[in-house]
Design a binder for these strands. Structure first.
Lengths: 121, 121
DNA sequence: AAGTCGTTCTACGGCACGTAGAAACCCAAG
DNA sequence: CTTGGGTTTCTACGTGCCGTAGAACGACTT
């Protein structure tokens, strides 16, 4: 999976946090609210790069185009975790280190999830 | 944590797989065995960049210098997983997606680890 | 037909990385 | 002390990604 640059991530955050599809101008406003002023074309460029990378999809039936995230943020992050895990030769060792350093809260969440967790996919 | 480029990762793999500290020449041989011919200075450059990034440490009491990984590969990967997890706002959601898509084997490993897992670091 | 808004094209600077030659360094031998 | 050879550091260049945005192009409204 391609990685995200700093601005790209900020844009994805805006898209992920929004309850509805965003136009480049909406994203621009979000960033403006966060103290970052950028030209509209900049957002358009970033959005199209993001689309090319498969992170967002555009609805071109309306103008300005509306962009939506292809995957939920949680799915994206989980996928990244899997990708990272896959880098290793010894998965068990990695999982051990991983679990060994999670917070108690995360551990509790994991226990609960694994209680019923069955076939994945 | 800084990320690794393609060559940098190959070098780290060599360092991680080796049972003892490696010199740049040792790394060069490893890569050669893998069908990749590079100048010795290239490996020196990469190794020094890796040292600057904190991935390896050098023993300069002998020449040629010997390099060792600062963290075990499993620790490195686990750390990356934590870093990725930290990107998210909703850790539980991410963990759910993560656990939801691990293999049964990985899940079993996780259950076992969490059975006794206590204080994390 | 023209104006206005929106999108795509093109472009440039910076940085990380792959790659390696040139220069500097250091130790051993003479 | 001087020299030589191996070792390391300096310097450098090409490439590709990313941040950034103006210019050019396209489409719809009036």
């Amino acid at each position: 999976m391609a990685t995200l640059g700093e601005l790209e991530r900020a844009v994805m955050d805006a898209v992920w946090d929004a309850p509805a599809p965003l136009s480049a101008y909406d994203v621009q406003e979000q960033l403006e609210a966060g103290g970052r002023s950028l030209a509209a074309t900049t957002l358009l460029t970033v959005l199209s790069r993001l689309e090319k990378k498969g992170f967002v999809a555009s609805d071109r039936s309306v103008r300005p185009y509306r962009y939506t995230a292809v995957a939920a943020r949680a799915d994206h992050v989980a996928e990244l975790m899997h990708e990272v895990l896959g880098e290793s030769r010894d998965r068990s060792a990695v999982l051990a280190r991983f679990v060994g350093s999670v917070s108690e809260e995360d551990a509790a969440v994991l226990r609960e999830l694994l209680r019923s967790a069955g076939s994945g996919g």
